[in-house]
């Protein structure tokens, strides 16, 4: 495939996702605020457990924890969920095969919608939290924030592609396979620094890839020293992100070539 053909496909995929976001504008707005409203309800409740003098220190941690979890869960939902509830339902799997376009390329374009929705959602949470906690400072070093978030997106993209590919083979929508969503928020080192978790849970958090990127993110946000040290956490985040993304793409190619092209799609559409 030549460079111009790649560029043409990339442009088509970006255009598709931007156009679709505009076509379903109410759904887009609804999707942007829905999860974050839920999360904000719990955040505001959890804030009342903290002593007032601790709030300026705790609130930025909560803010970035929720923002990171939002990006991770939206990426997985928008890729794995969209595969079965839209792509398979409307018969677009075969259509893309006929145009020699991998589904993983198409699905990676869903990051366009994730970015749009996340920006709105994160702004909403900031609006509510900053009005509750006066003088909340959420940025210390933007470089580490961007690096941490980028690693988390790459990890979530890889994980979402694995679930999406599994959804094509099984008759279970990909998102229903994602039983880890809420668990990783609490025990996965996303909501709180690993240091704040009870000791047995720290081992669980270290085993979950997102926790390392979250530690780097928190360092950039409020300067909390990462659990395993900044250098090691940053290196681990990058390696794990690249590994998960590569695993997702390779597994997708395997499922496409060795299963879907031979047996067809087994995944179901709307239940």
């Amino acid at each position: 495939m030549g460079l111009s053909e790649r560029a043409y496909k990339l442009k088509a995929i970006l255009y598709l996702h931007a156009l679709r976001t505009w076509r379903y504008k109410y759904s887009f707005i609804n999707g942007s605020i829905n999860t974050m409203l839920w999360v904000t309800i719990f955040l505001l409740g959890a804030i009342l457990f903290a002593k007032p003098e601790d709030l300026p220190r705790i609130a930025p941690v909560m803010f970035w924890g929720v923002s990171a979890w939002n990006i991770v869960s939206y990426t997985v939902l928008f890729i794995a969920g969209w595969t079965t509830w839209f792509l398979v339902t409307t018969g677009l799997v075969e259509e893309h095969f006929l145009h020699n376009t991998s589904l993983s390329t198409l699905l990676s374009g869903r990051l366009v919608s994730v970015v749009f929705e996340s920006v709105i959602a994160i702004a909403l949470v900031y609006f509510v939290l900053s009005s509750v906690v006066e003088g909340m400072d959420v940025v210390d070093n933007p470089l580490f924030i961007v690096y941490g978030l980028a690693c988390m997106v790459a990890m979530a993209l890889g994980y979402g592609l694995v679930l999406s590919a599994a959804g094509l083979r099984l008759s279970i929508p990909g998102t229903l396979l994602d039983i880890s969503n809420f668990v990783v928020f609490i025990v996965g080192g996303i909501a709180t620094p690993i240091e704040m978790l009870p000791k047995p849970l720290r081992l669980v958090a270290i085993a979950i890839p997102y926790s390392h990127a979250a530690e780097v993110l928190r360092y950039g946000a409020v300067g909390i020293e990462p659990y395993l040290g900044l250098g090691l956490e940053a290196a681990l985040s990058g390696i794990l992100a690249a590994g998960m993304l590569a695993a997702g793409l390779l597994y997708y190619k395997y499922v496409e070539d060795r299963y879907v092209r031979i047996h067809g799609v087994k995944g179901i559409g709307r239940m």
Binding site: Y24, N30, L37, I41, L44, I47, V128
Partner: peptide, 25 residues
């Protein structure tokens, strides 16, 4: 799609379900 699905969390948010309404904007 279910564009009204954010109505329930919005109502709960402004109702102060786990906190006093007075802490809201």
């Amino acid at each position: 799609s279910n564009i009204a699905s954010s109505l329930a969390p919005f109502m709960l948010l402004v109702s102060g379900v786990f906190y006093p309404v007075t802490i809201l904007p």
